[in-house]
């Protein structure tokens, strides 16, 4: 991960740290956006007869979010298992959270 953009900075470790923090923020933002897009699409009908989230839609969103996280975890597990099966799982970077 070092020296990816190693333009002769005085403190490379500083820019690396910032980049890491930035990357984590990106990951979280991206995750949130994906979740929102997915669950709004599945739970909110496009007719807009009302401006509030009704009870059914709210419950749908809650469950959708929970399942989205489940799938995230499941996929990450499966990918890790795959990588492990392919031999010598060298800490494949598919774990979510905690970099």
């Amino acid at each position: 991960m070092s020296g990816m953009f190693g333009f002769g900075r005085p403190q490379p470790s500083s820019s690396e740290k910032i980049a890491a923090a930035e990357q984590e923020m990106d990951l979280i933002t991206d995750m949130f956006n994906k979740l929102q897009q997915a669950c709004m699409k599945k739970c909110i009908p496009k007719t807009y007869l009302e401006g509030e989230i009704n009870k059914g839609e709210g419950v749908c969103i809650d469950r959708c979010a929970a399942k989205f996280f489940d799938v995230q975890l499941k996929v990450s597990e499966l990918l890790q298992a795959e990588a492990a099966a392919k031999g010598g799982a060298q800490g494949g970077g598919f774990g979510i959270g905690g970099m």
Partner: peptide
Amino acid sequence: SRCVKKFMAGSERIGTRFQEQQ
């Protein structure tokens, strides 16, 4: 206007669930 309002409400709700999960 309902579309925008509902989007905001949904966004807030999803945000809450997301934070809980985090």
